[in-house]
């Protein structure tokens, strides 16, 4: 748990379940419940395997966030889970987590008194992991579907950070080429100088998840079942840009996706060169468009439009539950930099 305080546990009670953090051995029951619950509500759902589960929750170098409601027999009543992220907020190290896989097993939860097992589990998660300070999650965020959003806003105090637009480019609109003096190369691994690049990028956004070799290796090279292409941009040998591409789909539309985008703020032409590479990857994959998700409040939102990206709405809207007044959703709208790499969407 990366040095974090062991959270308070709550033993089995009148509710008929215990609230506690994940313990080794829970994974089979968690996975069985996850696959059953989500298959019932999502016809396109593909069951998750144990390897993927372990990657998601045990492999993340930023830590684990798993809070469960468990019956005495070891069955999972509800889960509140998140992807931990090491952050720099105003230059200070801290954490946040992206809420994912939240669920309640209807077998147990129907007829339960308010607040239900799910809400109690989420409240336990926040008690365990969230708050102010370097080892707590400053905010918890997510990309809710409509049903989750109704519960999130009414019972868990989530608020909308933004309504997310999608930047997309087609062969007709795309207008970036290679940049003189910038060498773009596809690579098979992340080197240690990624952190140096991140340290140059980070001061331009007051709120940003740490990009370093361990984190990106976990996110893109160790994820089971997914293949990503990674490119670096260098000027005179110095890393000035990093991009990750994936052939896939977004909101059901086949496309190339720019999953990660980290550009030295003093070398915007590195972004042009990497966008050129990513668009070539898109055409190579037989796709018509390249898409990227960025905050509209950050500089690359406009810079992407200047090289031929256009904007259309999406169904997505990041929401956040914040634990200090400073990190109000409007502040996050203004200062938080994220890419698809921060999400579980690609």
């Amino acid at each position: 748990m990366n040095g974090r305080n062991e959270p308070q546990q709550e033993s089995a009670s009148a509710h008929g379940y215990a609230l506690r953090s994940y313990e080794s051995g829970d994974e089979a029951a968690v996975l069985e419940t996850f696959n059953r619950v989500f298959a019932a509500i999502d016809p396109t759902f593909e069951p998750r395997d144990l390897r993927t589960w372990r990657w998601l929750f045990e492999g993340n170098p930023s830590g684990r966030r798993l809070w469960l409601a468990v019956t005495p027999e070891g069955r999972i009543v509800a889960q509140c889970a998140g992807i931990a992220q090491r952050m720099l907020i105003d230059g200070e190290p801290t954490f946040v987590s992206q809420s994912i896989d939240s669920m309640a097993d209807p077998t147990f939860t129907q007829g339960l008194k308010r607040p239900g097992a799910f809400v109690r589990t989420c409240l336990g998660y926040w008690d365990a992991y969230s708050g102010s300070g370097p080892d707590r999650d400053a905010f918890v965020w997510g990309w809710p579907v409509e049903t989750a959003w109704r519960i999130g806003k009414s019972q868990l105090k989530y608020e909308v950070v933004r309504t997310q637009g999608l930047l997309f480019a087609t062969e007709r609109t795309f207008a970036a080429g290679p940049a003189p003096g910038i060498d773009v190369a596809e690579v098979a691994s992340f080197d240690e100088d990624v952190r140096e690049l991140f340290d140059r990028v980070a001061p331009t956004s007051r709120c940003i998840a740490v990009r370093d070799a361990p984190q990106l290796t976990w996110r893109f090279l160790e994820r089971p079942g997914f293949t990503y292409r990674i490119a670096t941009a260098r000027r005179a040998g110095r890393l000035v840009g990093l991009a990750v591409f994936r052939d896939g789909s977004f909101e059901g539309v086949p496309c190339g996706a720019l999953c990660e985008w980290l550009i030295d703020p003093d070398v915007p032409e590195a972004g042009h060169a990497l966008a050129h590479w990513a668009f070539a990857c898109t055409l190579e994959a037989g796709r018509d468009e390249l898409v990227v998700v960025l905050p509209d409040s950050r500089p690359w939102w406009m810079l992407m439009q200047s090289i031929g990206f256009r904007v259309r709405p999406t169904k997505y809207f990041p929401v956040a539950r914040y634990f200090s007044k400073r990190h109000h959703p409007r502040w996050l709208w203004d200062h938080w930099y994220y890419t698809l790499a921060d999400t579980d969407l690609v």
Binding site: V311, R312, P313
Partner: peptide, 22 residues
């Protein structure tokens, strides 16, 4: 942003800017 004019204006060179308003 769902309006056809949102896309049409971009085709004419207009760009999508953030604003302070919600």
């Amino acid at each position: 942003d769902w309006s056809p004019w949102f896309a049409w204006m971009q085709e004419r060179g207009w760009r999508v800017h953030p604003s302070v308003y919600t």
